[in-house]
Design a protein around this nucleic acid. Sequence first.
DNA 1: GGCGTCTTTCACTTGCATTCATAATATTTC
DNA 2: GAAATATTATGAATGCAAGTGAAAGACGCC
Lengths: 257, 257
Amino acid sequence: MNASERRQEIIELLNMNSTVLVCDLSKKYDVSEVTIRTDLRLLEKQGVLTRFHGGATKIIDNDDIKSFKELQLEERYQRFIEAKKRIALEAVKQVKEGDIIILDSGSTTMLIAEELVKLKHITVITNSLTSAFILSDNSDIMLLICGGTLRHKTRSFHGKIAEQSLDGISADILFVGADGIDAQRGITTFNEGYTISSVMANVAKKVVAVLDSSKFGRNGINIVLPLNKLDVIITDTSVDSKYKQEFEKQGINLIAV
Amino acid sequence: MNASERRQEIIELLNMNSTVLVCDLSKKYDVSEVTIRTDLRLLEKQGVLTRFHGGATKIIDNDDIKSFKELQLEERYQRFIEAKKRIALEAVKQVKEGDIIILDSGSTTMLIAEELVKLKHITVITNSLTSAFILSDNSDIMLLICGGTLRHKTRSFHGKIAEQSLDGISADILFVGADGIDAQRGITTFNEGYTISSVMANVAKKVVAVLDSSKFGRNGINIVLPLNKLDVIITDTSVDSKYKQEFEKQGINLIAV
DNA sequence: GGCGTCTTTCACTTGCATTCATAATATTTC
DNA sequence: GAAATATTATGAATGCAAGTGAAAGACGCC
C-alpha cells in the first residue's frame, strides 16, 4: 500500500461513511497518526474534505444546478412563478412511492419536476427535455423519455414517434399543463399539434391539470383535452370562485393553493 | 525483447492488475530500475498510466459523461480533455450542411455536440441526454432523441425502446466513442449493454470512432463494434504509429490531431 | 568507423514516514 | 466558569527509499 492508494481509499471511505477519524485510519493502514494528518491536510487543500479535531468530513457541493437556474430566468417562466411553485408543491402531494408518473411539457410541469427529483422509487415518463434533465440528477428515479423530434420553442418532444413510445404504458397519474381552460372547450393551448397530451391521458389512471389562475376563461386555439378527461385541477387562490362550482359540478376536484 | 515490446507488455500488465511496481518490472525484464522509470515516464506522458512513488497505476478513463467541474477536479483527466477537444473539432469537419448525424453517448461525443451546436441545417439523432440538452439551444438544428429508459451513470438512453426508435432511420454519419480499441476485438467499453451502438452503425452510411490515444491497446469488457464496421478513427497525435499502419491495412482511415 | 537508440552508472534531488518537542483544542473537575 | 488534565495538531529534524538528469557505455546498423 502506497501513499496515493491510501489517499484514494480515504476518499472512498468518506463517500461511504461521511466522517473518518485519524486514530482509526492510523490503525487501519498501520502508519503513524502524523502521516494520516498530512494525508488529510493534503486532501483538504484539494477540496475533497474538511478537517475537524480528530478526523475529517466530506464536502458536499451541488453547483451543477446553476445551468437550470439560467433556464428559469426566461421571462415566460418567471411570470406567476410564485403561484406556479405553490401549485407544483400541491401537485406532488398526489404522488406516492412506487407511482408511475407522466409529466407533460410546460413551465408549471417543469417546477413539478424540481419537486419530484427530491423523491425516490418513482418512475417518471416525460416528453420534456428540460424536465428529463432535472430528473436525471436523481438515480433513485426511473426515467423514461418519449423519443421523437424536438420542438424547440418548448424543448419537448412531439409527433408520431413520441406518441408511439407511450404504447403499452400504463401510468398512475398524469400532470398536464395548458395555456387556457374553459368550461366548454376544456384545456387548450396556443401551440399546434399537442395531440400527445390526449395519448398521455388515455394511458393514465388519474389526470391532474396544473395551471395558474390567469389561464381561466382564456381560450387557446387548439384543444388539448376535453374536461371529461380531467380528474383534478390544481391552481392558485386568485381563481374566481365561480369556476370552482362550475368544474365541481362536472365531477372535477378543483384545488386552489 | 526491445524497448517498445517491453512497454507494450507493461500496458498489458496494467490492464490485468491495476498497479505495477518499478522493482518488480526491473527484475522481470532484467533491466535496471532507471530504465523502467523512463518507460513509465514515457507512458505517463502518453496518458496510459499515472506514476506514484515506487510504481504506476492504470488510468481508468472510462468514457463516461462527467460534468466539466468533475473533470477539472481530477487533474489527471485534464490532458485528455485537450486532446478530446481537438478530436471533436476534427470530427465536425466531416459534417456538411444537410447531413443527418447520429451521436452516441460519451464524453468525447459530448464535446462534438458542443461543436455541432454552432452549425445549422443539420439533423442530429442522439441517445445522450446531455448532448440533446446542448443541441437544443440551436433551433436551426433538427433534433431527434432515442426514447427509452435512462442509464444514470452515463445520462443516456438504452434498451429496446431506444433501439426501436432508430427503426427506419437512415443517417449520413455516426460518431461513436469507446473505452478501448484493439485490432482484434474492435472498439470496447467497460459498461455493459451498449448494443445500441451496433444498431446505430447499421443505419449510418459512415461510421467515425472518436477516442483519445490512451484508449489504444486497451480492452474493455464489452465489444461495441468490430473493426470492419468502422470507416474513420479520429484520435490525438500521441497515438503509436504502429496502430496507424495496422488500422489502415484494414481499410480504416486513422486521423491523428 | 560514425551515428542513433537504448541502457546503465553516478551524483544529486525529491518524497514519504517517523520521532520528538511544542502548540492548540477538548474534557474533566472543582 | 476557570484551572487542570488529556487528547489531538503542527513543525522541524531525521533517515531512508525512490526519482531525476547528465554522462558514459553497449548494441546494432548503414
